[in-house]
């Protein structure tokens, strides 16, 4: 009998270990988990190579092809060294313009995210609101942002306001749709438990819908934040009088056929996008450690 008991206990322990083992992002104890893979055992270090080597090879190939094309077509695209030289010649100018674009993205996207999420909350709680205003939002969504941007510049002048609005507009819709899906996609049985406890609407939102919607919200952010950069750049394109921002820099430099500056600005827009998406991934790992990630629509 004793033997059986011991075996039973072992089985449970192994089971528990197996569960923890498979869900590597799950923490031990109350602590929130750090990034998985920070302490990789020496025997598994080769695995890291497999992660960064393939994309590195791709980048090197692209760079080589680019350089060859640039050397063959000097008046169409600049060489990589020319772009780098341009960046190094006047880093202050690029930095100032990058900050302007970043400001547009941060303020515009924050506004779009908040408004999108709040309207999603209202729609999730009151279905009639969805039927009432969703068609309007669909109309806004299908209107090309490139067409709206000049109209907004006319309405709001050449200052920062039209840029904020365009950025917020492009962020708004993916946030709305994903947040709404997340707020609706609650576990029915957990909802049943809460309803049997007569939990209020607010309590169900606070304890279940809001945290449960986060995987979808972050999926929405992954779509929306790169779009925010598009929105900011497009708004700068059309605001001809406003000279600041990487988008403005692209237009002005291109008009002057200054290829190194044009492409240096484009590269910086890429860098901005990568930084924002990386920051998002960092926050997601912190906030969403409990989600296995596979349930998230990417």
């Amino acid at each position: 009998m004793t033997e059986v008991r011991v075996r039973g206990a072992q089985l449970t322990a192994t089971e528990a270990t197996a569960t923890v083992g498979t869900a590597s992002a799950v923490p031990s104890g109350r602590r929130k988990p750090r990034h998985p893979g920070r302490h990789v055992p020496a025997s598994r270090r080769w695995y890291k190579w497999r992660i960064w080597l393939p994309p590195a090879v791709t980048f090197v190939i692209v760079a080589v092809v680019w350089q060859l094309l640039a050397l063959a077509n000097p008046y169409v695209i600049p060489t990589i060294d020319a772009i780098v030289a341009s960046l190094l010649r006047d880093p202050q100018m690029y930095w100032v313009n990058m900050l302007v674009t970043l400001q547009e993205v941060v303020i515009g996207a924050t506004a779009g995210i908040l408004v999108g999420f709040l309207i999603a909350v209202v729609m999730a709680e009151f279905e009639i609101m969805e039927r009432a205003v969703m068609p309007l939002f669909v109309v806004i969504m299908v209107t090309p942002i490139v067409a709206i941007a000049p109209a907004l510049v006319v309405a709001f002048g050449f200052g920062m306001m039209p840029k904020y609005i365009v950025t917020a507009l492009v962020v708004f819709f993916p946030m709305l749709v994903n947040s709404l899906a997340g707020l609706r996609d609650v576990d029915q049985r957990t909802l049943d438990v809460m309803r049997t406890l007569h939990a209020s609407r607010w309590e169900i939102f606070r304890d279940l819908r809001f945290p449960g919607s986060m995987p979808f919200v972050f999926a929405g952010l992954r779509v929306a934040l790169p779009l925010a950069i598009v929105g900011a750049a497009v708004a700068e394109f059309v605001a001809a009088g406003q000279q600041a921002g990487l988008g403005s820099l692209v237009t002005i430099a291109a008009a002057q056929a200054n290829l190194p500056v044009t492409w240096a600005s484009i590269v910086l827009l890429c860098v901005l996008g990568v930084l924002i998406v990386s920051f998002l991934a960092l926050v997601r790992n912190r906030v969403l450690w409990w989600s296995d990630g596979e349930t998230v629509a990417r």
Binding site: D192, V193, E203, D207
Partner: peptide
């Protein structure tokens, strides 16, 4: 009324203790 559904229906973002105290914190 205490309900035990077919699946555990726990909140994955809450600890075991915080899941169990849910009924005290609502209503």
């Amino acid at each position: 009324i205490g309900l035990v559904p077919q699946s555990p229906a726990l909140m994955p973002w809450r600890t075991v203790l915080d899941n169990v105290t849910l009924p005290m914190s609502v209503n």
